[in-house]
């Protein structure tokens, strides 16, 4: 039993328990706190080493906030994030800076996330200044290697970010994230701002790098087909909460949660004959405000199968057979 536990902890890369990120809302003359936006509300999951967990959900459901809170770019309201056995949420100051070498993020907007006044070489080498004791030449060499690794000409190191296209800039962002040789990378919609023709290149690059460096990814996206391509397991998020988490095959073949079903039914079918007879679940109403979520299940206001119990009780996040997790009263 003890041996089993130790091998399991070797395998486990990230363990998130009850993570919440609530933003206070201030209003009025004295700026009193009048409420809070529950951007992420009590989510729990784990990611194994070398695995890619996809995190999907519609805009504004808290995916990016969850990713940032995981890396402690925000101070989470509550919960625990263990990266390779270390509790990240408890770290402060110097210890936090040091663990940043293990966890990195690839940001959504490649345009805005690079300092416009720094050359590409210095953007990539900057983390090395802070965290390593390499000489100037070694750092330069490393920056050139990283540019090469993401498929760019190393001679571009002296250029500025604005001289590149969106796809190239995203590659620079990836090279920057890789500079410290992290174990875990949060990819926050890395392809959302890119052309469709470039998306596949970047995703393939991410996959290649994962194999070469044994990386673990949390891949945040709203693009269901792309997530299906890259992720091993997929978590579905709605209004700050996880509603379902299952392996890729399970989730796409037999979605259990009514929200997942509705979400997947929105993906168009490439075959026009199948597309014509495809049944779409169209949800009624709008997503409620995270500042004022409904009582009971967050999805109860729009759920086609909601019962009276759903309006009253918040469904527990429970494990079904086959490593599948769900939060729904109606699924047995």
């Amino acid at each position: 039993m003890a041996a089993l536990a130790s091998t399991e902890s070797l395998q486990l890369m990230l363990q998130v328990t009850g993570l919440s990120m609530h933003f206070p809302v201030y209003k009025g003359l004295m700026r009193r706190q009048i409420g809070e936006i529950k951007a992420v509300d009590d989510i729990s999951f784990h990611i194994m080493r070398g695995e890619t967990l996809g995190l999907v959900g519609e805009s504004g459901c808290g995916k990016s906030t969850a990713g940032r809170a995981l890396l402690k770019l925000y101070q989470p309201t509550s919960g625990r994030v263990e990266l390779d056995g270390t509790d990240v949420t408890a770290l402060e100051g110097e210890d936090l800076r040091r663990i940043r070498t293990d966890m990195q993020m690839i940001f959504q907007d490649p345009q805005a996330c690079l300092n416009p006044r720094m050359t590409v070489g210095s953007i990539i080498a900057e983390p090395l200044d802070e965290h390593t004791r390499l000489s100037r030449r070694q750092k330069r060499q490393k920056a050139r290697e990283l540019l090469d690794a993401v498929g760019m000409n190393p001679d571009y190191e002296n250029r500025y970010p604005h001289e590149f296209s969106g796809g190239q800039r995203q590659r620079i962002g990836i090279a920057r994230a890789l500079a410290l040789e992290p174990k875990f990378i949060v990819c926050d919609e890395p392809i959302a701002a890119l052309d469709v023709s470039i998306q596949a290149q970047v995703v393939n690059l991410l996959e290649d790098l994962q194999q070469q460096h044994q990386l673990t990814y949390l891949f945040i996206s709203h693009d269901l087909s792309m997530v299906r391509h890259i992720a091993d397991r997929i978590a579905v998020m709605y209004l700050g909460k996880l509603v379902e988490l299952a392996s890729r095959e399970q989730l796409y073949q037999s979605p259990q949660h009514p929200y997942t079903k509705a979400l997947l039914s929105a993906v168009p079918e490439p075959d026009p004959e199948k597309e014509a007879i495809r049944e779409r679940i169209i949800l009624q109403g709008d997503v409620p405000s995270p500042a004022n979520p409904p009582s009971g299940c967050n999805f109860s206001t729009r759920c086609p199968i909601a019962q009276e119990q759903c309006m009253r009780e918040t469904p527990a996040w429970r494990e079904l057979e086959g490593g599948r997790y769900i939060a729904c009263h109606m699924v047995q």
Binding site: C113, L114, E126, E130, R176
Partner: peptide, 17 residues
């Protein structure tokens, strides 16, 4: 509030830098 500032924090730079 720019994104590159968040990037800089994510790099693990000192707040001063």
């Amino acid at each position: 509030s720019q994104d590159y500032v968040r990037t800089a924090r994510a790099k693990g730079l000192k707040e001063r830098s």
